[in-house]
Design a protein around this nucleic acid. Sequence first.
DNA 1: AAAGTTCATATTGTATACAAGAAATCATTT
DNA 2: AAATGATTTCTTGTATACAATATGAACTTT
Lengths: 222, 222
Amino acid sequence: MAPSRASELAPILEQEIVTGTLLPGSRLDETLLAERFNVSRTPIRETLARLAAAGLVEIRPRRGAIVATITIKDLMEMFEVMANLEGMCARLAARRITPEEKTNLASAQNACSALVGTDHYDEYYALNMTLHELIYKASHNQYLMKQTMDLRMRLSPHRRLQVRIPGRLASSSHEHAELVDAIISGNAELAERLTREHVTIQGERFTDFLSTLPPHYLQATA
Amino acid sequence: MAPSRASELAPILEQEIVTGTLLPGSRLDETLLAERFNVSRTPIRETLARLAAAGLVEIRPRRGAIVATITIKDLMEMFEVMANLEGMCARLAARRITPEEKTNLASAQNACSALVGTDHYDEYYALNMTLHELIYKASHNQYLMKQTMDLRMRLSPHRRLQVRIPGRLASSSHEHAELVDAIISGNAELAERLTREHVTIQGERFTDFLSTLPPHYLQATA
DNA sequence: AAAGTTCATATTGTATACAAGAAATCATTT
DNA sequence: AAATGATTTCTTGTATACAATATGAACTTT
């Protein structure tokens, strides 16, 4: 296809937002971006509109665009949905996974667990991502896969808020092992339950509590 | 806020796509749209970009925009996710619904069942929608609610394809009654399971559904 | 000196002009 | 007459110019 400049720019900005190079709340000046990419403001505006629709950018009428900010409440809600989507992936994967996919999943799991006890956190994170994506794929529902990965992307700018709990890596790996077993053995209900528990932060009860709080308790995160 | 023309136009086109005034595959000529709304092509392009990001419009590089077409595979996958999202709404609603919301839900259910046996199909459809939205709201997860309603909107251009099976209205109403009971009595697991079964198109209904599809749904994935 | 108002500046939103690529038409050839 | 190729026309993609609104600074007023 003939790639327009706007469609080339979107992934670049998206990446910078997702990786945290551009922090939530940063102003996205159209003129500056236009100069930086050596294009006019027109494709920049199209790009920003796309990112806004994806939820990564916030466009305030007549007041310019900023990297999307989020409240704690939003974040909790999105994690809750994330747990459910990943749970659905796991459940469907348990029922639909092919023999070849089983092999790939098992080896990804082995590679992951081999890193437990080491200090290769970044590598573990990457492998962890691969493992999860293999599960998404094994659901054999491309729409579901896309939605799940989109939400993951949208959450990623805020992941640094997550606490690094000591020993979390080891227990996470153990949970993965259980989950992979459940999927490979075709236990759909168990796979779903394990995933929900695995992804959910501090238990759903905490979200229950938050959801009952008046809005003004939870203002925007810087 | 000071509404830009583009942000005014998006809902209009969205509505026409959702209601089927603009059918899937229809070309969306920028110049024609610009003349129709008495604006230049610039805001039209922004509008189309937004709708494309929402999945309602398909922009083919250098070849213009059309109302999004969908394959049967896409449709099945989206319905599968829809069943899961609504199931999640029901589960959370069962745990978080307030007394006031219980009252509203019960009366909506009564209004709905009162129409069974009559020929007020459109009215039933509207009330049915209200009932479902009340459940979404009772989940007390606004992000989930938005995602669910977005997907519903995206599916709606294709909803008229659904079969009008004789007696379906009555059995649908019975399922609603069970579901509402489950939510009001706080049975989260049951509410989720009932909803999944309610939304999922399965068995003979699915075959009926397939048989009504126009040929263009059967094309290979674009 | 502080607060409010007014004016200047900068940035967004829209229109128009121009460039590049795709589709359609017409002519030419077999 | 059919098919292929070139030319023309139309549509999209980008740039630039202009209009409208918000932000910030300076000045006046109390």
